[in-house]
């Protein structure tokens, strides 16, 4: 396998255009990208919506419980009299931030581990892959529940900080990243193994390039496609995990709204106000499915079999 036939050189030349065209062909992925952009925009604009409606997402008002939809409360109010729409928008902020941050963090962990295992090989590879297999074999959700329930004061965090709602957000990102880097690690390792044998890597080695340079300059840029796809797909998973934990009362802590914790009391609401149960879950569903379609579309568009390498 030496030279490419001339026809493939032309394919290669139009790689970016080809990618764009293939992606645009994937109508669901494009629609998903639009939906996600809208959701992000709405989440960013949450304070604006709050101001425009003249409501406060965290203002509890017992007089205004379970109000039906109206001009001030387009989706009505919840069991504590808070505006549902405003809370949904703020909740979207949290879900998206946690989803993106944890997915990125796990992509970084997975990339470092995958690169090291694939490039160095040998014992390090064996140890790292056994570690990966071990983490994959863990019962994910129960373990996350334990991790989320850990009392931070027992590991030396000051009481005030441990109970702080903002800290619950960082903690969600940290523990989810801690268990969800395995997919990226495996993919990056596999891609690294094949890129490592390509001649430009040998050329750099022959020239005296050190391992760090080889990994960051020569291998990493050539394995970004699987990282992008896996990370996009994992955003959806992360959002699901965050919502479950928050729903169970172990994730994002009130008064910060998240789509998950808005459903915490839902089992009591199914009789009285089922529409309160519908919206947060529907938005989680929409966001997660959009990220999954987006990842699927990216995968098709970046498929190495379709693009000459």
């Amino acid at each position: 396998m030496t030279a490419l036939p001339p026809a493939l050189i032309h394919v290669r030349r139009g790689m970016v255009t080809l990618f764009a065209r293939r992606f645009l062909d994937h109508r669901l992925a494009v629609a998903s990208a639009v939906v996600l952009a809208l959701l992000a925009l709405l989440a960013v604009a949450a304070p604006v919506a709050e101001w425009a409606l003249g409501v406060d997402a965290n203002a509890v008002s017992l007089a205004a419980r379970f109000l039906p939809p109206s001009a001030t409360h387009p989706l009505g109010t919840d069991e504590l009299g808070r505006d549902l729409l405003a809370r949904l928008l703020y909740g979207g902020r949290v879900s998206l931030i946690v989803g993106l941050a944890a997915a990125l963090a796990s992509a970084v962990i997975g990339t470092v581990i995958g690169l090291a295992a694939g490039y160095y090989g040998g014992k390090l590879d064996i140890v790292l892959m056994r570690l990966t297999d071990g983490v994959i074999a863990l019962p994910l959700l129960p373990l996350l529940i334990v991790l989320a329930a850990v009392d931070l004061t027992k590991i030396g965090l000051p009481e005030a900080l441990a109970r702080d709602a903002d800290v619950s957000l960082y903690r969600m990102v940290a523990i989810i990243a801690l268990v969800s880097w395995t997919t990226v690690a495996r993919l990056v390792r596999g891609a690294t193994l094949s890129v490592r044998e390509r001649e430009f890597v040998l050329a750099a080695t022959a020239c005296g390039a050190g391992p760090l340079r080889i990994m960051t300059v020569h291998i990493l840029p050539n394995v970004v496609s699987p990282i992008i796809v896996a990370t996009t797909l994992s955003v959806g998973n992360v959002i699901l995990l965050e919502s479950v934990l928050s729903f169970l009362g172990l994730g994002i802590q009130p008064p910060i709204a998240s789509w998950g914790n808005m459903l915490t009391g839902a089992q009591e609401l199914i009789w009285s106000a089922p529409e309160l149960v519908f919206w947060p879950g529907a938005l989680i569903f929409l966001t997660v499915i959009a990220f999954n379609f987006l990842g699927d579309g990216l995968q098709d568009a970046l498929d190495p079999r379709a693009i000459a390498r």
Binding site: L28, G236, L240, S243, V244, F247, L263, A266, Q267, I270, W271, P274, V277, F278, P280, G281, A282, I284, F285, V288, I289, N292, F293, D296
Partner: peptide, 26 residues
Amino acid sequence: NLLCFAGISVPVFWLALMLIIVFSVM
């Protein structure tokens, strides 16, 4: 394909709540 994506994207706890609302409440 669409249904599969829906199946893997739906939050299980919410799906449960919805099923309860529809088949046990409504």
